[in-house]
Write a protein that binds this DNA or RNA. Structure first.
Length: 217
DNA sequence: AGTCAGCACATCCATAAATT
DNA sequence: AATTTATGGATGTGCTGACT
């Protein structure tokens, strides 16, 4: 279990959030998207011990963090490696040997995550999946980033686009960089403006760059 | 030399999209 | 609607380099 001191920001968190509360909050964000009436009341009902105003405040702090990181005002957090990754993995994956041979499907990469991946790729280079995971696609482990990269490079190297389904991997490094620069202070994806405003956290209820409520600065 | 971490690559398999 | 095909996430394996 990740200790509270690991992810709490004493400067921006007026009340303490336990790890489980954060996870419940994260799930609730997905269950109750932005257009949901009485969204914060509904979310707070899923987070034991938190009021609607507290969850709303928590959300705003997180968005502020992301905006600050994307604007380059603050450095993304650094982690004590294995501790974080082990715990992050334990939240989203299970080993192949565990649990009656059922194979996990996994969480699909969002367009936003892929763009962050490409930006990280450009910045840190191919092979430095750890840095990309830590500083760019913080919602993914190095293993996940490497796996995604493998598919991406397969796609890129396969060349011809004809007779192929459209894919998230069709987004190039240059496109991602351009989108990033055009979208400097926004936390939303850029391809579908109508969706952006509806679902600010397109992946699992969290903003891009958000990695599980662990890094308010 | 042994151990460990990180990586590339190959493969499995669920799912979505395209085709018939 | 049924079938085929492509995609993508997860994972197993082997290699390499760093460390003890």
């Amino acid at each position: 279990m990740i200790p509270d001191t690991f992810y709490l920001n004493p400067q921006t968190s007026s009340t303490s959030w336990s790890f489980m509360q954060d996870k419940q909050f994260e799930k609730a964000l997905v269950i109750f998207p932005e257009e949901t009436p009485n969204r914060w009341e509904n979310i707070s009902s899923q987070v034991p011990g938190k009021t609607a105003s507290e969850v709303e405040q928590h959300y705003r702090v997180l968005v502020d963090d992301i905006n600050a990181i994307e604007a380059g005002l603050i450095e993304p957090p650094t982690y004590t490696d294995d501790f974080v990754f082990e715990n992050r993995d334990s939240l989203t994956t299970k080993t192949a040997k565990s649990n009656d041979s059922e194979r996990r499907k996994g969480t699909p990469w969002t367009e936003e995550e892929h763009k962050l991946f490409l930006i990280g790729l450009k910045k840190y280079g191919k092979g430095d999946w750890r840095s990309i995971s830590r500083n760019a696609v913080v919602s993914r482990t190095p293993t996940q980033v490497a796996s995604h990269a493998q598919k991406y490079f397969n796609r890129v190297n396969s060349g011809t686009k004809e007779k192929k389904r459209s894919s998230i991997h069709d987004i190039t490094v240059d496109e991602a960089s351009l989108l990033q620069s055009n979208n400097q202070n926004s936390i939303v994806p850029v391809n579908n403006p109508s969706q952006q405003l509806q679902v600010p956290f397109p992946n699992h209820g969290a903003p891009a760059g958000y990695q599980g409520f662990g890094f308010h600065m």
